[in-house]
Design a protein around this nucleic acid. Structure first.
Lengths: 136, 136
DNA sequence: TCTTGACCTTCCAGTTGATGGAAGCCCTAT
DNA sequence: ATAGGGCTTCCATCAACTGGAAGGTCAAGA
């Protein structure tokens, strides 16, 4: 398979696949003309990577997960630790976004959104942390 | 005020303040020795930026919001549109993260996390044909 | 006066995970 | 022979900083 076929079958853009080779996540062979030649197991690896990335795992996590996947002596403990850490990061991010959402949705709801200059959103931005009250 | 004072009073790292000057968000004066000299209104701007960034607005949004803040002829409509767009982005991101969280927390719960190699997490990663997150 | 140490300056590089584009081979079909 | 795709490499760019090196400035203390 050439890179175009693998791109289509894995759902990853060719650019991304080249990048993954660059950083050592896959090692396709080469044809005499210099083209990358992928085998089924490369395709499988790329699908694995795509799935892991779609779950938000970092590239470094993906590297570790692939290594564990290919290591028959792995323990499910090791895998779960990576997933747990990632889950914790997701939870922190969720809380952060939920907090932003709460504040912003209140502000948007309070704002008239008309042709007048008065705006609770700008008031909020201007009033946090320090010097208030000059211009507009 | 020197940059250290402004950093302390605005809560932004000095590095970040220099960066904001670099990209034209603030324009502090200079002392004869080359040091940046900040006035109260610079500090106020930086606090505004810090607050906007903490609500997740992009730098370009911040630039627009600052411009509106300083424009007496602005309309609250313009401000609200920026905030609404940002809110929509936050909502999309939240949904995405919630989906990841759901999948991952199931997988983590199913995984024994012991010294055996069998692992539902790796099975999931390996079993999805395409790259994009979808159904099991 | 000299020195120490904190503070300031600029510039360069790296982070994450790709993505866009240019210049130029390779292959097949007409 | 030429046109068109597809493939190659390399370089630049995105966000929003952050770290560090090399060096100038300033106030205080011995």
């Amino acid at each position: 398979m050439n890179i175009g076929d693998v791109a289509e079958r894995s759902g990853l853009p060719a650019k991304t696949i080249r990048y993954y080779e660059d950083i050592g996540l896959v090692r396709p062979g080469r044809d005499t003309n210099g083209y990358r030649r992928f085998c089924e197991s490369d395709l499988h690896k790329l699908a694995f990577l795509g799935r892991a990335r779609s779950l938000g795992f970092s590239i470094e996590d993906c590297r570790s997960l692939m290594a564990l996947y290919e290591d028959r002596a792995r323990t499910s403990f090791e895998v779960r630790e990576i997933a747990r850490d990632h889950l914790a990061r997701i939870e922190r991010k969720l809380e952060e976004l939920q907090e932003m959402h709460k504040t912003l949705s209140h502000l948007v709801a309070e704002c008239a959104g008309d042709d007048r200059p008065d705006c609770p959103i700008l008031r909020d931005l201007a009033s946090h942390g320090g010097a208030c009250g000059g211009e507009p």
